[in-house]
Each structure stands twice: as structure tokens, then as C-alpha cells.
């Protein structure tokens, strides 16, 4: 089993009067695929946002390679997201005014890769995700499944250690969802990235190394 590289300890989060996460402890290992399940509003997305440094917990620590991410300032959190995290969103969130290839290149440019490396990595991902024919097209010209593949390519482009996917198949039909998940899972495994997925899908839970349920703002490992 690979070594642990993310550790959450006593994480709490409250929105106004509502306690969303309470005393959450979890350790995530490199290359692990974890499915977070639970009812709508149970706190799955909140937990993923905290792990992805999009949001701060009210209390508790989030350690990534000995650093407490929760305590970092906004600049350091941006750098953490830029280098170590890839996001796959339910509504794809591609930039419609950039072509497919340009969308995939974006995290590489942010991480100051040189042009040759960017070109090589983009064509590699285009091939791997079977979307090379759409390289010069704009996202709003593609179907939902095709857009989600582009989103996955973009999330994996800079080889992050953590990939966070919030309901990645929520907007897709069963067949497309299955294909997208299989691609996402296999590429993450190939890259040794931890894949954390918030989902209602049995397909995802079936593929996961671990399934974690959030009930009454606490974790239950199934």
C-alpha cells in the first residue's frame, strides 16, 4: 500500500447554524481512489472543497506532505492547487473562449512548462482521452461526454497528486459516464494520483478502493 500523503484531523465546518462537517478524520494514500457518498447536502462537496484548498475548515488540520494546508495564506493555497490538485467539475467548467487544446494547456502554462513540453503533453492527453479530433474546436461545440473528457484531460495535464471530482458523471448518460469514469480511474492510477470522487453513482463506488459515507456530518467507512 502506498504511503499516506493527505491527512485530515478533527476537521469541522459550519454554515451559519448548520454543522456540515464534524470532527472528520481521514487519511488518504497516494494513488488511492476514494468515493464519498451521502445524501444531497450531507457535506461531500464541502469536504472535497476543503481538501482541494478551495475552502478553509473552521477548525482541524489538513496535512499534505507535512504541511498544514488549512493554515496557509491565499497565495500559498493557490500554489498548492496549481501544482498538486486537479479538478473535474460536474458542469465541466471549461473555458468556452479557449479551444480544447488551449483548455488542456492552461494548467501547464500556469506551472510554467516550456512550449515543447506543453505541446507534447497536450497531444498525449488528446490521444489518451480520444479527443484529438476536437483539439481546435471550442468546448460549446462538443457533447457533454466529450466536454467531460476534455475536463479530465485538463485536470490531469500537470500530473497532480490529488484529483478531485465532484459528481463527474452527474450530467452524463450511463454509457458515457461509464467510459468517462474508466478513463479517469485508469489515468489517475497510471499517474499515481489520489482520486477523490463525490458521487451518487454505484459505478463509481464499484471502482473505488474505499467508499466513505457522510452521515450526520461524520464519516463512516463502508
Amino acid at each position: 500500500m502506498p504511503a499516506s500523503h493527505i491527512h485530515l484531523e478533527r476537521i469541522c465546518k459550519r454554515y451559519r447554524e448548520r454543522q456540515v462537517l464534524n470532527e472528520i478524520d481521514i487519511t488518504i494514500r497516494a494513488g488511492e481512489l476514494i468515493a464519498f457518498v451521502g445524501r444531497s447536502g450531507s457535506g461531500k462537496s464541502t469536504l472535497l472543497r476543503i481538501i482541494g484548498a478551495l475552502e478553509r475548515p473552521d477548525s482541524g488540520t489538513l496535512t499534505y506532505r507535512t504541511k498544514n494546508i488549512a493554515a496557509l495564506d491565499e497565495n500559498a493555497r493557490s500554489m498548492f492547487r496549481r501544482k498538486s490538485v486537479g479538478f473535474v467539475f460536474q458542469s465541466f467548467n471549461l473555458i468556452n473562449t479557449l479551444s480544447v487544446a488551449e483548455n488542456i494547456a492552461l494548467p501547464l502554462q500556469l506551472n510554467l512548462f516550456n512550449q515543447a513540453d506543453i505541446r507534447r503533453r497536450v497531444s498525449e492527453l488528446l490521444e489518451q482521452l480520444n479527443i484529438a479530433q476536437y483539439a481546435d474546436q471550442f468546448p460549446d461545440e462538443l457533447s457533454g461526454g466529450e466536454q467531460q473528457r476534455v475536463a479530465i484531460a485538463r485536470a490531469l495535464a500537470h500530473k497532480p497528486q490529488i484529483v478531485i471530482a465532484d459528481e463527474p458523471t452527474g450530467n452524463l448518460d450511463l454509457e458515457t459516464a461509464r467510459t468517462v469514469l474508466s478513463v479517469l480511474g485508469s489515468v489517475c492510477r497510471e499517474q499515481g494520483a489520489s482520486l477523490l470522487v463525490a458521487t451518487h453513482s454505484d459505478e463509481v463506488t464499484g471502482m473505488a478502493d474505499r467508499v466513505v459515507r457522510i452521515v450526520d456530518s461524520r464519516l463512516q467507512t463502508l
Binding site: 493557490s78 500554489m79 492547487r81 496549481r82 479538478f87 467539475f89 473555458i95 468556452n96 492552461l106 500556469l110
Partner: peptide
Amino acid sequence: RMFAVLRAMGTHP
């Protein structure tokens, strides 16, 4: 949304 995505990807303000 575009700016939010860019910020999520680690773009500095």
C-alpha cells in the same frame, strides 16, 4: 465562472 475556475486551478489574483 471562468474566473472562479481559473482561481480553482491556482491562478493568483
